[in-house]
Nucleic acid binder design. Structure first.
Ligand SMILES: [Mn+2]
Ligand SMILES: [Mn+2]
Ligand SMILES: [Zn+2]
Ligand SMILES: [Zn+2]
Lengths: 148, 148
DNA sequence: ATCTAATTGCGAACCATTTGCAATAAGCTG
DNA sequence: CAGCTTATTGCAAATGGTTCGCAATTAGAT
């Protein structure tokens, strides 16, 4: 049993769930990837290891992992499928380049400042912050510029 | 012709589009509401004035208005239908209370600071910022507290 | 009043996600 | 290890929001 599987097991057991084949497979894929994946992409990768795993089970595993705080679910655009990735904190937010499509992470304490401000001045207790900045990344604004 | 319709007409004409019954009806509903409405809710309201207007036309009008910058489209939660409202700037973001469900607006210059920081230090040119803070509003955290 | 292209209504298609249910298997317990 | 209970799975069908194709309508120009 791999180290990553061990982590999964303890999280599952602690919450009273079972360690199963499909869950392990989904976990390995998500934990072993750097990117934001759709359920279908995850299912595809999972199937290469075990072709019997069903897409429904992938969805169910992801929902459970999200619940346990192991993975993070993101909407990276209207009418786009949900993307999943290993959990990361709120203050690490998303920069999406509309030219190349890449999604980068950016850590800023400004998110934390917003939370504090809302709590201190407005009594709003934030439990989750989702910040998506869409625009042009450095590389793309460079290559798309019409200068000499 | 109402004032609000006149505004719509000039925006449409300027972009080479026609002023039509369905577009006026959708516009009146969105412009006359304070809240974030789903396409179905808008269609319902539109039908009370003109029952012949189709849901597809509502979607098409909303897509066009969004394109023209007249309305704003928001995802206020995973697996929830898209919501529309009259356009408002990026720095006016969303606070969603998970207890009462209300969505409030909050204006903070911190969003603008994030944009500047990304531009100055990372060469990322933001064109749109979507910030959704989920948590408990002041009223709800008060009434849900278990104190004497 | 005529003309033409944009727009609409309608129904069907689409796509991501969820669900019901019978079959399977994880993790006790002895 | 074998038996038992119940969570979990695979499958296929349902769902719900949104889009699409196309023929009929209509806005706006001439
Ligand atoms: Mn991320
Ligand atoms: Mn809003
Ligand atoms: Zn880019
Ligand atoms: Zn509330």
């Amino acid at each position: 049993m791999t180290e990553s599987t061990r982590e999964l097991r303890s999280a599952l057991v602690e919450a009273g769930h079972r360690l199963t084949g499909p869950r392990i497979a989904v976990w390995e894929v998500v934990a072993g990837s750097e990117s934001h994946l759709t359920a279908e992409e995850i299912a595809e990768a999972v199937r290469s290891a075990d072709p019997t795993v069903n897409l429904s089970s992938v969805y169910r595993s992801l929902a459970l992992f999200t619940d346990l705080g192991l993975v993070r679910e993101s909407n990276l655009g209207a009418n786009e499928a949900t993307h999943w990735e290993l959990a990361h904190p709120d203050e690490q937010f998303h920069l999406k380049c509309k030219a190349c499509g890449r999604v980068e992470h950016h850590t800023g304490d400004l998110v934390t400042q917003i939370e504090s401000h809302l709590s201190d001045h407005h009594g709003f207790k934030a439990s989750r912050v989702e910040l998506l900045v869409t625009g042009m990344c450095a590389e793309c604004s460079q290559s798309h510029s019409s200068n000499t």
